[in-house]
Simulated assay, not measured.
Amino acid sequence: MVYASDVRCINSLRMDRHTFSILCSMLRTSGKLRDTRNVSVDEMVAMFLHILAHHEKNRIIQDRFLRSGETISRYFNVVLRAVLCLQGQLLKTPEPVPENSSDEKWKWFKNCLGALDGTYIRVHVPEADKPRYRSRKNEIATNVLGVCSQDMQFIYVLPGWEGSAADSRVLRDAISRRHGFRVPHGYYYLVDAGYPNGEGFLAPYRGQRYHLNDWRQGYQPTTPEEFFNMKHSSARNVIERCFGLLKMRWAILRSPSFFPVKTQCRIVIACCLLHNLIRREMAIDPLENQLNAIMDNEDDDDDDIINFIDSSEQWNDWRRELATQMFNEWRGNRNTR
């Protein structure tokens, strides 16, 4: 399953042999995993990754690994706790877009640290809790806040909020926690129209063309607001791609698991940490090649919901100046060609 070839390893565990070896080494060093008399660390980790990747039931894993159901359950939880110990090493440290950036997506957003959004991940909860976890899409789910960098690595993840909670409420909780989400002064993240345009969070203009599909018919922006929205959407799309790749990679995030809610939330964090490791260590990720076609066919209905924390007039003025500057520079470049 692991060491025969990279192709087989990726198909089974979603990572190549090199990345798998690095993960096992990190779990031995930082996660304090140890071989037991009957089960090696490599096998513990392989069982864990296989469950995340394919979301197979315990009895299927018993047949594949020739282990008892109790052994599989015990080591799944052991490895899960060890992976969570790697947060300090695997969560991405945010890096601002530099002044001299030449990246077509990001060069307009100097000092931007990345993008954030919420996503729903379906969960099993007791019957009495279902109304609180029912999302606007009528799914029983947890609303997960994800923050990612320009290269699609997670900076911060907060699962656990009920599906009925508004994205802005989840963000407000994240920034109020003692060791929660922090945005240094002078820096910011790109957010969608469901969040306020306030210090640290740059939102698009409402009532203007925004989603990438709006610009694929040859339509050109005619106002600073439209041009700003086009560039904002192109850059902020990184968080949508990040969530899309995460769910493609780990089948356990695509359907409810039968773990307690607290364990399900830990699984979400573990999947994000492993996603970061794969992004760093694997030069070629086969799943990324499948992502574009899937995302092109998905509709984004986030604009149907308006949730506000506190907007800032000063931030609105800065957005207006930035949009005008971006539009004038773009129009000037077109006229000189």
Results as ranks from 00 to 15, higher is better:
123 V>R: 03
245 L>V: 04
82 A>K: 00
138 N>Y: 14
228 F>S: 01
330 W>P: 00
111 N>Y: 13
106 W>A: 07
271 C>Q: 04
236 R>D: 07
19 T>V: 07
234 S>E: 12
227 F>L: 14
20 F>S: 00
23 L>T: 05
253 L>P: 03
117 D>E: 11
86 L>F: 05
62 Q>G: 05
55 H>I: 03
113 L>M: 06
146 G>P: 05
187 Y>C: 09
108 W>P: 03
36 T>S: 15
155 I>E: 00
62 Q>R: 06
237 N>V: 13
186 G>M: 08
46 A>P: 04
281 E>K: 01
257 S>L: 15
134 R>C: 05
116 L>G: 03
68 S>R: 08
320 R>C: 07
216 R>E: 14
27 L>F: 01
301 D>S: 14
326 M>G: 03
212 L>Y: 07
307 N>F: 15
96 P>H: 08
12 S>V: 13
164 S>L: 11
62 Q>M: 05
96 P>Y: 10
286 P>G: 02
232 H>E: 05
8 R>H: 08
94 P>A: 02
177 R>A: 04
157 V>M: 07
25 S>R: 07
289 N>W: 09
148 C>I: 01
148 C>T: 00
194 G>S: 04
256 P>T: 04
303 D>E: 07
289 N>Y: 12
208 Q>K: 10
170 V>N: 04
54 H>E: 04
37 R>D: 06
183 V>F: 01
184 P>V: 00
116 L>I: 00
264 Q>F: 02
319 R>G: 06
106 W>P: 01
23 L>S: 05
199 E>R: 13
4 A>I: 15
279 R>C: 00
27 L>D: 01
32 K>M: 15
126 P>T: 12
285 D>H: 06
101 S>V: 08
321 E>S: 15
82 A>E: 02
